[in-house]
Simulated assay, not measured.
Amino acid sequence: MRQAPFIAVEGPIGAGKTTLSSMLAETLHLPIIKEIVEENPFLDKFYQNMDDWSFQLEMFFLCNRYKQLEDTITQYIEKGKPVISDYHIYKNLIFSERTLKGTKRDKYRQIYHVLTDDLPKPDIILYIRADLDTLLARIAKRGRSFEEGMDKAYLQQLIEDYDDAMSSLAAREPSTIIMTIDGNTVDFVENRMHYEEIAAKVKELME
């Protein structure tokens, strides 16, 4: 492990990525990079009509995440400072492979690789894995209006896509440590012991 690791927290919608990364940032005294979600002007339209608005939605996310990570390189990674992010930019491919089709998907893949192939990869990925019922309960609890009508089949497919993506990343980036957290049984928000076990493990991996 290098002296200043780059940590990413990942998982499907509702897994608790931002919550966990924020808690770890405070405990481990790390700067945090949070993805822009609610500011995306295409979210409402996307959930109403995925086919018509998926390309605009995915491009907005890609460009914003690219800019954030570009800034992260300058502010932290190049200076040898550890940092935690509540996403891995690879998530753009996870979502776009499901939402885009045909030539739009091909164009998006090309743009994605041009922008991201030379970006630094996380040293540690915390993968929060949870089943559909757990995710639906957490989504309902946080009460985002644009998520109220989310298709359950879409979310279930996303769970499976994330499992496949983590397997792919493990094969493609063998130096990256992927730590899987069982979101169905581990409650890092309500159970302090559960959280402290995660934090202790992450601290150990950073050393």
Rank of each mutant, 00 (worst) to 15 (best):
I178T: 09
S54W: 00
E78M: 09
E173I: 14
K203E: 14
N191Q: 12
Q75I: 09
I36W: 06
V202D: 05
F188L: 04
K203Y: 04
T134C: 03
I111L: 15
D106N: 14
K201Q: 14
R138G: 01
E58H: 01
E207V: 04
I159M: 04
T176N: 02
S96K: 06
D44E: 12
E207R: 08
E204K: 15
Q56W: 09
E97I: 02
D117I: 09
Y47I: 08
A140Y: 00
I125H: 13
E58F: 01
G11Q: 02
F6L: 10
K107C: 13
Y47S: 05
T185A: 13
F146H: 06
E35R: 00
M150R: 14
P5V: 14
L136I: 06
T27Y: 07
D106P: 03
P41D: 04
H29F: 02
G149I: 03
R65G: 03
D164W: 07
T180R: 09
D151C: 08
I73H: 08
I77N: 03
L169I: 15
A200F: 11
D151V: 11
A15W: 00
R192A: 12
G143H: 05
E148I: 13
A199M: 06
S145F: 05
S175K: 15
A137L: 06
Q156L: 09
